[in-house]
Design a protein around this nucleic acid. Sequence first.
DNA 1: GGCATTTATTCCTTTACGTCA
DNA 2: GCTGACGTAAAGGAATAAATG
Length: 233
Amino acid sequence: MLDEGEYSSGSWMNSVITTRKKKIKNKRRFSDEQIKSLETIFESESRLEPRKKLELAKELGLQPRQVAIWFQNKRARYKSKQLERDYSILRSNYNNLASKFEALKKEKQALVIQLQKLNASLKKPGEEGQCYEQNTGVNSSEGESDNGGSTKCETKVKPSLSSLERSEHGLGRLSDEGSSIKVEYFGIEEETNLMNMVEPAESLTSKEDWEGLDSDELFNQSGTSYQWWDFWV
DNA sequence: GGCATTTATTCCTTTACGTCA
DNA sequence: GCTGACGTAAAGGAATAAATG
């Protein structure tokens, strides 16, 4: 630890202070050539073998201790820069993810609204919903009905359903079991549940959350009743 | 082989000097 | 010339592993 008998004589504290001040007074920055050589070696190996340290010190006209300290400080500086780079990359990835999340959330909300409209129209007696039920349930088994308006209802409702399926890449599926449409979507059965899921997602994506959240906090969020990435999985 | 001690090395933090705006 | 910010050489100290008795 202590080199060349640095603190070897006199009162310990006084010796430390005087010796240290004397040493630091003589502190000189390394020359450009010395720095260049050190940098070159550091690029290939961040830690020096003792033998190589002696050789390098001799070559540069420095004390081996100085070379060791330079490498030590260089490793610290490199690590600090690396941390900055890593943080920058993580932040960029995080921002990308956040914007994708926002887009997906909007898409989902649009689909939920579309679904509500479809359900509402099907539940109204004597309107399009009833026509659809007759078309899909009755007309298919009996071949035809004496109702001349069946083709009109079909063209109005079915395109909406197919657009829902298409927009969800085949993940969303509608069935007409019972009196209303049930959704096999995100692993839930009713759109009320679907709507409930929107709320926590909203709070997570508020401006304060995005600004005050670092990546660790994001991945450690356990305050909500579900994980936000489960939202669309 | 297990142990205590010594030695060497690393990392982290702090100190103090040099430089520059 | 003074001052504050910043970069950096160097020291202090804790932790760790290898060597030694």
